[in-house]
Design a protein around this nucleic acid. Sequence first.
DNA 1: AAGCAGCATAGAATAATTTTATAAAGGAGT
DNA 2: ACTCCTTTATAAAATTATTCTATGCTGCTT
Lengths: 307, 307
Amino acid sequence: MARNSRGRRRFLNFIMDIHHLKVFASVYKHKSFSKAAEELHLTQPTVSDHIRAFEDELKCRLFDRLPRKIIPTKEAAVLITRAQEVIERVEGFKDVLGEFRKDLSGHLVIGASTIPGTYILPGLTSSFRQKNASVLFEVVVSDSRAIIDKVAGDDLLIGIVGAKLESKQVDYKPFLDDELIVVASRKFDLRKSISIRDLVNLPIVMREQGSGTRREFEKILEKEGIDFQHLNIVGIFGSTDAVKQAVKEGMGISIVSRRSVKDELTCGMLKEIRIKDADMKRQFYIITHRKRTLPHLYKMFLEYLLS
Amino acid sequence: MARNSRGRRRFLNFIMDIHHLKVFASVYKHKSFSKAAEELHLTQPTVSDHIRAFEDELKCRLFDRLPRKIIPTKEAAVLITRAQEVIERVEGFKDVLGEFRKDLSGHLVIGASTIPGTYILPGLTSSFRQKNASVLFEVVVSDSRAIIDKVAGDDLLIGIVGAKLESKQVDYKPFLDDELIVVASRKFDLRKSISIRDLVNLPIVMREQGSGTRREFEKILEKEGIDFQHLNIVGIFGSTDAVKQAVKEGMGISIVSRRSVKDELTCGMLKEIRIKDADMKRQFYIITHRKRTLPHLYKMFLEYLLS
DNA sequence: AAGCAGCATAGAATAATTTTATAAAGGAGT
DNA sequence: ACTCCTTTATAAAATTATTCTATGCTGCTT
């Protein structure tokens, strides 16, 4: 039945959904119930019913039914504008999403551990910006542990880290390679190539705990059966630059990412000491939250990174 | 079942009615399906279902469901503004009508035949305006026939006329009384009181056919058994003022509405000749279309007229 | 007066929404 | 690790809404 117990409709809800408004607008446009029915692919009784329900709801007559035509009342004339506005907005709903998807501008926040944040991302963000319009990049640099926690805890959407810590929330995608190398000041007198066991005897400068670089180094030592405690640690610094500075000053050697000392090696400020018997390769990862949806801009950037 | 054949919904229609938008907005606000369900007096599965349907419709995820909380996606953040706008507009629908009803400003068009339009309405519109704000009155003066036709034909909403012509469309409400009187120039030498039959011998100035005054006069003659053809008509004028002018000039006597010559009688420009043997009372009517709804302003004015 | 055009009404058929009941998944506390 | 708790998902049944067909009514028109 078109109505439920004579004129009263719906249990709790209101009549004014888009559908009803559309019927109203169409009747107003055609000044005819049957023409409106035709346009909307409904039957005339349905249209009648909608109009009546709408009139009941508003407690006012909207159309005067004269024998040959219907005339909208003043009230209908007042309402039609608003009704059309609402319809238009709702129809445009999907377009809003479409527009939004085309839009590659916006604010892109990326978490990164020291090496990726300092030596990898600046180049990539810069070239992404050259291809795509106006993106504001914000690179949050912290150590790997902190970045992973932020991604897991919904504070960041994407991160690039140099360590893989277990977390159910986080999805790891392998990204670029890197290699840990041993560096020393150019004044440091040492053979060009040593065994990993020789490290035990050398003064070492290190990053703090939580650093991906340090963690990788610890993993390598462990694999080689060397106890971290036996190392001769002479300094711990909170940043790669500080470590590099200390090494340049001759405080000791350090194990750092090759990417972080590329320039110093080229100009001879630091020299590399090859380790002949250990694999010092490491992997960087792009991390995202396993259950969160990336905004479009982020997806685009992620695709760019992986290509 | 909440959905009909697994996720596909509705036969022909779209999901985005106000109801769905409200569910979306509530979930967005509370960041919780169950809280939204509570607010909307629905159950949680219903809310789940609406959101899923909406997501299917837009082909994009709106909320990331994490274990303890849900996080709106960027898409949801983009859409929520628009959704709230639409909801607000629809909620405000009834208020628009309310406002409209309180509003007593506007354009009020009244049709009137000569006597009401010239001698009755100006006073009434003026006092109505003193009580109520800013009404723009437009008085369309024409003869009774024309006004009745315009009301019947939807060109006018309200009219005041001095004749009752049959028309199924038109509703007549008795309004003020009037009286037809015989007037003559003050130079015109005649007894103060005559019989209606004496009119046959006098030179008469008249309004055109269609005039309510003339029609009333014809009806009186008919009642008295006097043939209109036997009258000594010496002039026909298209307006009451023209008739009055002609009478003043001594062209003849005329039968006019007492209201239209009130001032002239007072200052002696015209004199009344009493008819001792005929009832010359007449009635004015407020007319409206039987099936049309009067706008609020018109209703107010009508009430004012009838009080 | 019969035919026609246009809206209203009633009841049946169809479709959509909401509910109850239950599952599944992930945290929090013991 | 196990259990409880919270939150969302799923399924089927119940409820409610919408639409349709058929028919009635009214007032023009011829």
